[in-house]
Design a protein around this nucleic acid. Structure first.
Ligand SMILES: [Mn+2]
Ligand SMILES: [Mn+2]
Ligand SMILES: [Zn+2]
Ligand SMILES: [Zn+2]
Lengths: 171, 171
DNA sequence: TTTCCAGTTGCGAATACGTCGCAACTAAGT
DNA sequence: ACTTAGTTGCGACGTATTCGCAACTGGAAA
C-alpha cells in the first residue's frame, strides 16, 4: 500500500518553501502523513499525531488537511467508502495513481499507467479543461479474492474475473 | 449535465426484472433519479420525490439509494465535494463517463473516451482485478472559466490552461 | 533580544450527512 | 381474501466535519 513514487521534497520542506507558517502541529501532522505506510483517515492521523503531541486537537487535523489539500501536497480519497463515509489522505506522489479497492477483503491496491497519463492529456485538450487534481477509484474483487472464489456465482450476471491472462501494461 | 448515453431499460423495469419488490416509494424514487437532468444528492432526491408522495421518508431514500447502488443501477459520485460532503447519484449509463468539476464556477461536465475503456481493460488484465465499478473524477478549471481568466495567476506555479489547442480525442 | 500581531490553536458546541430499531404497513404469492 | 416476508415511517442515534472565539505563538521587525 506504499506510494509507488517518491516525493521530491518532504511536506514540511514544501510548506516552508511556500511561506506557510510552520507550527509544531503542522510539522507533526505533515511528517505523520508522509511516513504513514497506508492511507490515513482523519481519526487515525489524529491518533498517530498524538503520540508525539498529546495536545493536538481534532479541529487542527481537519484544518491542516484542508491546507495541505489546497496546496496540493496531499490527495483525498474515498476508497469506495468500504467502511463508513470517512475520507483518506496520502502525500501526493510524482505521478498520479489509481486506487483499487476490493469489496470482499477490503485491501487497497495502487496502479500507475502511461495510459492514465494519456487519458488526462486527452481530456485537457478535448475539453479545454485545466486539470488541478484527479481521482480514479475502482471497486471490485482483487486477484486474491478472485482466485479464492470457486465459481463466479458472486459475479452476478457477468463473465468470470479469472478469464483474463496476466499481461504487462501497454501504453 | 445530462448523461451522455441512454440507459437500455428504465430503472423500474430493471427492478422488476430482477425480482425486487416494487413499492410505490421505489417507483417514485427510481423515476425521479432517471428523469433528473443533473446529479442529485439525497436531500434533493427526497425533495423531488415528495412532490409525488408527501409521505416519503429520508430513511427510505437512503435505503433505496443503497439498493440501487448494490444492483448497479446507479452510480455514486463525490463531484469533488465542491459544497459539503454529500454524495450525488445518477442512473448508470451504457458506457462509463468521467466527471469534470470546475472549482471556480461549480459546473459539472461529462466525458467519455475509448482511452478510458482501454485503461480499465488494462487494469483488469495487469492486476487481475475484477472491476465492479469505476469513478474517475477530475477537479480543475473549465474552459469557460479559463477563458475568463486574464492571466494564469490563479494557476499557481503551473503552465497556463489556455495553451493547448482543441483537438478531437484519439483512441 | 524583545516586542508585536496576524495567523493558528484548543475547546466545546453546532452542523451535516447518514444509519438504526422497531412497530405498522403492503406487495405479491397462494 | 389470507398470509407473510420484506418494506416503510418515525425519531433517536452515530459519525464525520465545521465553527466561533479567546488564548497562544511563529517569525518578522525593531
Ligand atoms: Mn495511494
Ligand atoms: Mn466521499
Ligand atoms: Zn480481495
Ligand atoms: Zn468553470
Amino acid at each position: 500500500m506504499k506510494s509507488p513514487n517518491p516525493q521530491r521534497r518532504s511536506l514540511v520542506e514544501e510548506l516552508s518553501r511556500r511561506g506557510v507558517r510552520l507550527t509544531g502541529q503542522r510539522k507533526i501532522l505533515a511528517e505523520t502523513i508522509q511516513s504513514a505506510e497506508g492511507h490515513l483517515d482523519a481519526a487515525s492521523l489524529l491518533e498517530l499525531a498524538r503520540k508525539r503531541d498529546k495536545g493536538i486537537n481534532r479541529a487542527t487535523v481537519y484544518r491542516t488537511l484542508e491546507l495541505l489539500k489546497e496546496l496540493r501536497l496531499i490527495d483525498e480519497l474515498d476508497l469506495m467508502h468500504l467502511n463508513g463515509e470517512k475520507h483518506f489522505y496520502e502525500a501526493k506522489t510524482t505521478v498520479d495513481h489509481v486506487h483499487l479497492a476490493c469489496f470482499q477483503c477490503g485491501r487497497i491496491e495502487e496502479y500507475t499507467s502511461p495510459l492514465f497519463e494519456r487519458l488526462k492529456a486527452e481530456i485537457e485538450r478535448a475539453k479545454q479543461f485545466h486539470i488541478r487534481l484527479v481521482r480514479l477509484e475502482i471497486g471490485g474483487r482483487c486477484s486474491r479474492c478472485c482466485a479464492k472464489a470457486q465459481s463466479c456465482a458472486e459475479c452476478a450476471e457477468e463473465e468470470c474475473c479469472k478469464a483474463a491472462p496476466v499481461k504487462p501494461p501497454a501504453a
